[in-house]
Simulated assay, not measured.
Amino acid sequence: MARKYIDCREFPSDMNCSVAIAADSEDELLNAAVQHAVAVHQHVDTPELREQIRELFKDGTPPLVYR
């Protein structure tokens, strides 16, 4: 399976979050991203949140510098 990532820098927020998460497994990435969304951004872990997050996955690894 190809590496995938999600990058908070792509989504404006009051806290200017700079976290990017990558994993070789979509399930592993989803679990880590949901934990981050709940712990840091105060989202509630719901099936809808999980689907929204999964739709934001990108192939590869996050860029070192976000523009």
Rank of each mutant, 00 (worst) to 15 (best):
N16I: 06
S13D: 15
H36V: 02
P62V: 03
D45I: 07
L30P: 01
R50W: 03
H41D: 05
E28K: 15
V44S: 12
A2T: 14
L49C: 05
Y5K: 05
Y5D: 03
S13R: 14
P12E: 15
V40M: 12
R54N: 05
D24N: 15
R9V: 04
R50L: 04
Q52E: 14
N31D: 15
L29E: 00
T61G: 09
F11M: 09
T46G: 08
L49R: 02
A22Y: 01
N31W: 02
V34I: 13
E48Y: 04
D14V: 12
A20W: 01
V38R: 04
H36Q: 06
V65P: 02
V44G: 04
D45G: 07
P62H: 04
E55T: 09
D59C: 05
D24T: 13
F57W: 04
V40Q: 13
L29H: 00
V38D: 03
L56D: 05
C17T: 08
M1V: 11
E51R: 15
A2P: 12
Y5H: 10
C17W: 03
E26S: 14
R9C: 05
Q52V: 11
S18P: 01
Q42A: 13
K4C: 04
R3K: 14
P63C: 06
C17L: 10
T61E: 13
V40G: 08
M15D: 13
T61R: 11
T61I: 11
L30C: 10
L29G: 00
S13Q: 13
R3M: 12
H43A: 09
E55D: 14
V44W: 08
A39E: 15
R3V: 08
V34P: 00
M1N: 12
L30R: 04
A23C: 11
I21W: 00
E55N: 13
L29K: 00
D59M: 06
Q52M: 15
L56S: 10
F57D: 01
V44F: 10
A20L: 06
L29S: 00
A37M: 09
A23M: 08
A33E: 00
E26W: 07
Q42E: 13
L49W: 02
I21N: 00
D7G: 05
C17E: 04
M15C: 11
H36T: 04
R3T: 11
P12I: 12
K58H: 14
A2W: 04
F57S: 00
R54H: 06
L49N: 02
C8Q: 02
K58P: 02
V44R: 14
F57G: 00
R54G: 00
T61C: 07
H43Y: 14
Q35L: 12
I53N: 02
V65M: 12
E51Y: 09
A37Q: 02
P63R: 09
L49K: 04
D45C: 09
F11K: 05
A33F: 00
L49Q: 03
E48F: 07
A32F: 03
K4D: 00
Y5R: 04
I53L: 14
V65F: 12
H41G: 03
L64Q: 10
R54M: 05
K4I: 07
Q35I: 08
H36P: 01
S18A: 12
C17R: 03
A20H: 03
L29M: 07
N31F: 02
L64M: 09
S13N: 15
Q42F: 12
K58C: 10
V38T: 06
A22S: 15
S18L: 11
T61F: 09
I53V: 15
S13T: 15
A20D: 05
E28A: 15
S18V: 10
I21C: 00
